[in-house]
């Protein structure tokens, strides 16, 4: 026998959910007009300011163009300043890959790239075939391993696609730090909570680009909304260019894409 629900979209559970969603969306709506200073800055991501932020209808993408990265470390400096990241921990960092003719790959990252790369590597004896820089940050996985392992629900994936950390709930067990295949997380030495790159969620919600994208002098880092068909990232993702993600075989489905990444990049 078939049971027909007279109103399949409005049973009690979904009704309660909807009401609660409405309340939260309303409170989120109050977020953007705060900070009168930020509103004086021209909007960088169109379609965020001056309207209700529909948390269920957002999609963002981050693209790193390795062929344009010059390893200046502006992004690392900006990131450290934006969040006062403690020394020795990095929300984003730039790695240097050196490939020799023997196919040996040498990777180094002195101080996370904070001081830039002033000198070439001296310890490589063989002839160098290729050198390139790879900026790393949170991959904002669609199937995030860190979210799965968190025992207290402190790490979560928000409806607009960001993997965030609830610092009030985090107990600092560091399970997520081990789970992240990209080593994007660290334990804050003072607060004793897990922290990581949020793609500058607070800036995005005010219509500004993430700090690292904002300071990148060569445009190696690109960020934008996938709901906006005029955005650079939408055009790149729609286009024929080869985009790769890190550790695809892990099945994490990152929303961070790399353009021009060599096979050696992991």
């Amino acid at each position: 026998m078939k049971i027909i629900n007279p109103s399949p979209k409005m049973n009690r559970r979904s009704f309660v959910k909807k009401v609660l969603n409405g309340t939260i969306a309303g409170s989120l709506y109050l977020v953007w007009p705060m900070g009168s200073e930020s509103l004086e800055i021209p909007e960088q991501i169109p379609g965020i300011r001056g309207r209700e932020y529909d948390i269920h209808n957002q999609e963002f993408a981050f693209i790193v163009d390795i062929t344009r990265c010059i390893g200046c470390g502006s992004c690392c400096v900006a990131d450290k300043r934006e969040y006062n990241v403690p020394d020795g921990n990095f929300r984003t960092w730039v790695e240097r890959y050196v490939k020799g003719f023997s196919d040996e790959v040498y990777v180094d990252c002195p101080n996370g790239g904070l001081d830039g790369y002033q000198h070439p590597r001296k310890d490589i004896t063989e002839k160098v075939r290729d050198t390139f820089f790879v900026p790393k940050l949170c991959n904002m996985c669609r199937e995030a391993p860190c979210v799965q392992v968190c025992p207290v629900g402190a790490t979560f994936k928000s409806p607009d696609g960001f993997v965030l950390v609830d610092e009030k709930r985090c107990v600092g067990c560091a399970y997520c730090i081990q789970a992240c295949p990209y080593s994007a997380r660290f334990l804050h030495p003072v607060k004793k909570v897990a922290q990581k790159c949020t793609w500058c969620y607070h800036r995005i919600r005010k219509g500004l680009l993430p700090a690292c994208v904002q300071v990148c002098p060569t445009g190696a880092r690109k960020f934008g909304s996938m709901k906006d068909e005029t955005s650079e990232v939408y055009k790149i993702l729609k286009g024929p260019g080869v985009l790769t993600v890190l550790k695809k075989e892990m099945g994490t489905f990152p929303s961070l894409y790399y353009e021009g990444a060599r096979r050696e990049v992991i």
Binding site: I24, V31, L164, K168, K206
Partner: peptide, 13 residues
Amino acid sequence: AIVEAALVPIRHG
């Protein structure tokens, strides 16, 4: 927590 993440003060203009 989403609201709190959005309310972090910006430091870079």
